[in-house]
């Protein structure tokens, strides 16, 4: 009896907690007022339009897109062969390698960012964009290895031998029968990597520098100076972009199978 009563209440609370902020942000971004506020004062699209007019947003959006797409692709180029080797060959210390590769998931982003800055960027004098690119690749790599490994585990390895016996080289077998069968996993890893990189704050915070910022960092500094609803509008737009990507992925791939 009491269970029946509590369950919907708890469900409602959880949903409010999860979706509430999203609704507040959408509402705030449609405000006609001058400052970020909820409930919104009047209704208008002026802040949504403003987002596209702010020069620094455009630049940092470009940086973020470059990092998310380029970093993810690079992480996959490193991660797919690594996952393959880990799953198909008796690599000595495979477990240790797996742990190390996935450590950025475990270690707080602030620490990763600081370590990268202190021991790589400063001593080797990397350019900001290059440093950001490496950092994002390192952050995405664990997701790439995990998701791709999972789909490799589900793929029998004897099909590669079958392909070899039908005339493929070992490498040919990888591209002809392994890649097509882990395509879903690779796309899932791509989406996860993209979203992770795009939303990344702590690591980027340490590595951003004059003129080169990722979008989230840019939004933070914008808010320090200007407290208008355009940041809310931008957040809402980004949320819709992520939703759109996940929706398409689920629609065409059954994304949730891989994550």
């Amino acid at each position: 009896m009491s269970n029946k009563l509590y369950a919907p209440i708890i469900l409602l609370l959880v949903l409010t907690f999860l979706i509430g902020p999203f609704i507040i942000i959408i509402a705030a971004s449609l405000s006609a007022g001058e400052t970020l506020s909820f409930p919104p004062q009047g209704l208008s699209l002026r802040w949504v339009i403003k987002v596209f007019e702010v020069e620094s947003f455009r630049a940092s959006f470009g940086v973020s897109m470059f990092l998310a797409i380029g970093g993810t692709i690079f992480a996959l180029i490193l991660g797919i062969p690594a996952s393959y080797a880990l799953s198909r060959y008796k690599v000595p210390g495979a477990e240790t390698i797996r742990t190390i590769v996935s450590s950025p998931i475990i270690v707080p982003g602030i620490i990763v960012g600081l370590a990268l800055l202190r021991y790589f960027v400063v001593p080797f004098n990397f350019g900001i964009l290059f440093a950001l690119f490496l950092a994002h690749t390192a952050l995405i790599l664990p997701y790439a290895v995990r998701v791709v490994s999972a789909s490799l585990t589900n793929l029998r390895s004897d099909i590669e031998e079958a392909a070899v016996l039908l005339g493929c080289s070992r490498v040919g077998a990888f591209f002809r029968v392994v890649m097509p069968n882990i395509r879903g996993g690779i796309l899932a890893a791509f989406i996860l990597g993209f979203v992770t990189s795009f939303n990344q704050v702590p690591v980027s915070l340490f590595l951003s520098g004059p003129g080169v910022r990722t979008l989230p960092i840019d939004m933070l500094s914008y808010m320090e100076i200007t407290y208008d609803p355009s940041v809310a509008a931008l957040s809402a737009l980004l949320a819709f972009m992520s939703l759109g990507i996940v929706f398409l992925a689920e629609r065409f791939l059954g994304f949730s199978r891989y994550v």
Partner: peptide, 19 residues
């Protein structure tokens, strides 16, 4: 090498290409 031998092998698990 295996891919140049005129030998066929049918696996116990069939090993068909799922895609």
């Amino acid at each position: 090498p295996a891919n140049k031998r005129p030998v066929g092998l049918v696996f116990q698990s069939y090993a068909l290409f799922p895609h």
